[in-house]
Design a protein around this nucleic acid. Sequence first.
DNA 1: TCGTTTTGGTGTTTCGTTGCACTAATGACG
DNA 2: CGTCATTAGTGCAACGAAACACCAAAACGA
Lengths: 349, 349
Amino acid sequence: MTGIHDVAKVAGVSASTVSNVINGRGNKMRPETRQRVLDAIESLKYTPNSAARQLKSGQNTTLGLIIPSAANPFWGAVAHHVERAARNHQYRLLICNAERDRDVEARYAETLLGSGVTGVILGSSPLNFDHLRDLIRRGLKIAAFDQRVAEVEQNGVACSVSVDQHLSGMLVAQHLIGLGHKRIGVVTGPIKTNSRIDRVSGVRAALARARLELPEDLRWQGGGVIGFGDMEGSELGRIGIRELLSRDNPPTAVICGNDMYALGAYAGARDLGYRVPDDVSIVGFDDIAMAEIVYPPLTTIRQPVLAMAEQIVGLLIRRVEGDEIPVDEAFIHVPPQLIVRGSTAPIRT
Amino acid sequence: MTGIHDVAKVAGVSASTVSNVINGRGNKMRPETRQRVLDAIESLKYTPNSAARQLKSGQNTTLGLIIPSAANPFWGAVAHHVERAARNHQYRLLICNAERDRDVEARYAETLLGSGVTGVILGSSPLNFDHLRDLIRRGLKIAAFDQRVAEVEQNGVACSVSVDQHLSGMLVAQHLIGLGHKRIGVVTGPIKTNSRIDRVSGVRAALARARLELPEDLRWQGGGVIGFGDMEGSELGRIGIRELLSRDNPPTAVICGNDMYALGAYAGARDLGYRVPDDVSIVGFDDIAMAEIVYPPLTTIRQPVLAMAEQIVGLLIRRVEGDEIPVDEAFIHVPPQLIVRGSTAPIRT
DNA sequence: TCGTTTTGGTGTTTCGTTGCACTAATGACG
DNA sequence: CGTCATTAGTGCAACGAAACACCAAAACGA
């Protein structure tokens, strides 16, 4: 392994000088000295050992991203954009897949902190942060997707970028109500997260405003399904919509927890001979790339992932580097956008 | 930050003893001493600082995974399984998204090596490893998906698990030929990888055996498309099949580079009023979860991702920990499996 | 000419952990 | 009782980079 001393020897300077060059203090020396060091680094193909670096500084330039499910392309897209944003800031990104399990999540966060990562972006939106409290006390900065400001402030979260999920739910429900739907079903998985709860509450609010409601028999949460933990969202969506459509008085439209559920719901509807959108309208959330490829193209709520990724990375890095950020800047809300495509249609008369 | 010395002080022993406890050398001391140390660790909520640890040992228990595209759910699934396999071995996984760019790939590999990761799994299958040769010399162990043994040996790759892509291509082509197809098109992106080349050569071989061929005008490689780098596979598949189906004598079946291309091809065929599989048969490779959800369910080649992930992780960890592995164990081949679903049908008469 | 400031560096300590070389205490045995 | 083995544990020197305090030489001013 070539170290800073080897470079120093080749360049004919001290290790300190090499360190200065590397860390942008090149103005503290003669240009020619700087160049000699640069040449030596080049010719030896020297890479600073980041273990040593971070041992010394206690800090490092790596962020963590904990996602709920690598199997869902939405999180793939998030990872992609976060990774890019981090790279633009000269940070690296360690991606962890926590499978929506609080324990796994906590273990990963602990591992990350132990390896010097002090900034972690949490993709899931847990109801609370009890499992991370110790780590926050030990210096971990958490950036959250999809957290309500109130929760966030109570929980010591460093910053967040959220879409208003309540509004998302309302937009979707209003769209369906506008198409004449009255019996609207909801399909989600069994795991409670803030974003899911808020979406459903938004749906309820819109229904209420139209003097409608969401009866229990049109709400499917995967309760009876065994082993859902290993099941893809699409599989749950498929099963869920089949159950709803098999009820005595089936829904004419179904709101799915996310796009993967919705695509599964396409299959479930087909299984029972229902056509989308003629016999049943289906909507999702997220707007994954597949949403406009499938047939019919999926009506959904777009989350501006790119912008969210850039903002949250920017905020988190400021926190990690010691900035205090005023509350009104640290907890950002971005608007959801309803994308109407072909999976929703006026109710059949 | 609590360090090993704090623990030592609380437990009334030396730091070395604490180190011994942590590193499984607890049999070198009285059980009660061990317990005191354990209690101290617990009460202080001590986590070993892995930066210091790996600085000292030069090694660490992290593997890297470089994937070509986080946007493709196939790689999401790979990441998922590799991550699990790594965790089962007490290793962590650092996932990097290289976007099929050799430079980015090399930079990531270098960054990984710099941070002490000596084992990296390469998801892409580049034609050669020139861009990684220096890193291999500096001690990086590369585990490859989808490499031909000959390439691998020449390139200093540590181990590999590959499906026989040539055979995959043959299976797909034979299936279509068996359904009576004679004009068979191929759609892939512009980037050359071993696995793509082998698949196409397999297709050609099967065609040749049936006294058929793959004319240039049925081979679409995204040549004229601008900015393909930012384009999802599905988008390429959509454009590609539209071009093929617009030819004077269009194909009756199209083989797509992977499942995402194939799903895009569904959309492209629909754009032109073609029905799948009645007017055109479509097949993919990978068998992503979506393949059986979409309509019609996609005929494709399944890669046994779970088994491959477990094997490659096992092999790579052995290499990283210093094992020499006989060649016939280090370069494993697993069989591809043709999954016939609804996207292929006998040619219309 | 002497004192002061600036430029261009250098030497040493430190981060937390590990592993080797060591020792002190205990035990076994002829 | 003396000798040797074993057990139980300690002390110290690294690992590679960074930061601080320091210093030598040159430049400058009066």
